[in-house]
Nucleic acid binder design. Structure first.
Lengths: 346, 346
DNA sequence: CGCGAGGATGTCAACGTTGTCATACGCGTA
DNA sequence: TACGCGTATGACAACGTTGACATCCTCGCG
């Protein structure tokens, strides 16, 4: 059936001709409008199948001003935090017939700007921005241009923006408090990217927990800067070479925690025997490393589900979100790396 | 500056009016055409910035018949195999100004069909189908409709389809042969999804390696069916309850291998002491589980890069790919779980 | 001084769809 | 008989952009 080699997509016009009705009637059938006789509907449907016709979403979007796709901007899909998040965004979107255009930014402002710009050109109906690094003024301008926004782990006061955040400070507090409860007095913080709102929140929680016990904050035992396994290892190495090394480490995320544990082992230190470690995120890997990692779990799938649901709702009603911000509380998952368990088996 | 609340996107017409030229000239400036005086170009650029104008990709795509986006259909982004793959597809696409629309299918034929259909409506310029489960006839029909296809780990004889595959049988052979070389005579296979081409290839390699040593294939020590941690655990449990349990396990993928190791440990068996384990994929986690997992590495990022590069090339030249199929060879990464290392440190 | 060769710009008709409005046909009711 | 209403359909103009083609300068050269 295929023409010699060229593309051969049927248009609504061809369907109309084949079924002997006007293109408007075909349009009505496609869109399930009322007031189409059963007979007409049948003959149009037949023609559609015979021609293997598919409506052109570009043309449709041009006139309806809806593209039925949303943009999803994240730092890096390779970071294990993101897949469950992305997956649930996608599921929620697909369930309503929406597509997701995914963009990684590597936490680079330039790339993030470029991604947003491209997404806007593509006329996405809305944008989910995960841990955006861009200045608030820029995001305000984006929202001003008419696009709907859902931010994750960041807020923005704009009638077209909503947010889903997990309480980073609370997470930092819980992790640090737990270590303190275990008797540690010198707890280090492996810091994440300086521009990250999550990092700032977790650091604040860490300091609050310290304050609550009257322990002075010591900038010497704060190291790091990038959320990766190798950065975690390097930071841990630096920390342990100190005159007074820490006896416990609270890491910005699980990747850094795993890197730290790796380095500790290489240096012949035992976790949690010599140094206790707590991470953040609860990535899948956390339960399987040795020792299993104690960590603060972010409800990744729930965050994605919520972000997508909120955005889609805003798109549907085109009304400001309410409440503007939904806050989730992270949960401390206690495994072996913090030394809570007696050193039983292996 | 924003109108009361409504959307206010500038169009090419407004830019034209503001800069006092025709829309065609604006179009020329946007597209960097020659034959535009420096002065005109300047005034148009000014107007564009003043209005914060962005070309509408829908309208553009309608007339140029190019959407500058590609569809990427995968099983499940949560499976750690995919993120590096997706990431490199995205990078390659972004580098050429293309967007990626991501769809997860959960290995479900219905969802895969639906995803492809939606992507076609969106007028993507090409499709990357990863480990498609769909009948060849269906894929042929898709390609017939004019779209360009790149398949991953599967081939299709069609002038508009290319493929990137890793030699699954070779991987299966290497993994099994290694175990055999280590002295094992009863090597089990933890099988993946029955409909998966990768599974079929790996199983074939496994049998070939057995054959090469004159060891009879024993269907009793083949178990499994789904590529997940829990499925791996269950299959291992079943295997170990046999009259003559295996002394080594070759798993369809790392997830299953990790699940198997987990279950083995729970039952008090040592890996690799009592049972040797080899996985497939070399996901990030593999190096960090206990013991570190020996596995057959797929060049995930390279596969993504190649798939995207081939597709983009086909889009650019709209000529059949050559060679039609690129085959990559997987590599055996030896870690601790197979018992190759002397049982030195922990 | 006239002419041709570019350079610079504009007009108009697509692209494939939906929204608005008009029209036509019964059929029950005043 | 005339009217109005519910049903079914079509004509035509958008939507925002680019491609094909036309036009009009200006300048150098014979």
């Amino acid at each position: 059936m295929s023409r010699h080699s060229g593309v051969n997509r049927a248009t609504i016009k061809q369907v109309a001709r084949l079924s002997g009705v006007s293109i408007k009637t075909v349009s009505r059938v496609i869109n399930g409008a009322v007031y189409v006789s059963a007979q007409t509907r049948r003959s149009v449907t037949d023609a559609i199948n015979r021609l293997n016709y598919r409506p052109n979403a570009l043309a449709r979007g041009l006139v309806t001003r809806r593209s039925r796709s949303i943009g999803l901007v994240i730092a890096d899909i390779v970071n294990p935090f993101f897949p469950p998040f992305v997956r649930s965004v996608e599921d929620a979107a697909a369930a309503r017939g929406y597509n997701v255009i995914l963009c990684d930014t590597d936490e680079d402002r330039g790339r993030e700007r470029a991604a947003i710009s491209l997404l806007l050109e593509k006329q996405v109906d809305g944008l989910i921005l995960c841990a955006s690094r861009l200045p608030a003024a820029f995001l305000m301008a984006v929202a001003d241009s008419g696009i709907l926004l859902v931010l994750v782990n960041r807020v923005l006061r704009h009638p077209r923006a909503a947010a889903v955040v997990v309480d980073a400070a609370e997470g930092g507090r819980r992790a640090t408090a737990h270590l303190l409860d275990l008797g540690h007095r010198r707890v280090a913080y492996l810091s994440g990217p300086a521009t990250s709102f999550s990092h700032i929140g977790r650091l604040r929680g860490y300091r609050q927990a310290l304050d609550a016990r009257g322990i002075a904050f010591d900038p010497e035992i704060v190291a790091g800067g990038a959320a990766s396994i190798v950065a975690g290892g390097e930071a841990a190495a630096k920390l342990m070479s100190l005159k007074r090394p820490p006896t416990a480490i609270f890491a910005f995320d699980d990747l850094m925690a795993i890197g730290a544990m790796e380095d500790l082992r290489r240096q012949g230190r035992r976790v949690p025997g010599d140094v206790a470690v707590v991470g953040f995120d609860d990535i899948d890997m956390a339960a399987f490393v040795a020792p299993p990692l104690t960590t603060v779990a972010q409800p990744k799938a729930e965050m994605g589900r919520l972000a997508a649901a909120r955005l889609l709702e805003m798109i549907k009603t085109s009304s400001p979100p309410s409440p503007r911000t939904v806050t989730l509380t992270p949960e401390l998952i206690i495994r072996r790396s913090c030394g809570w368990y007696k050193e039983a088996a292996t």
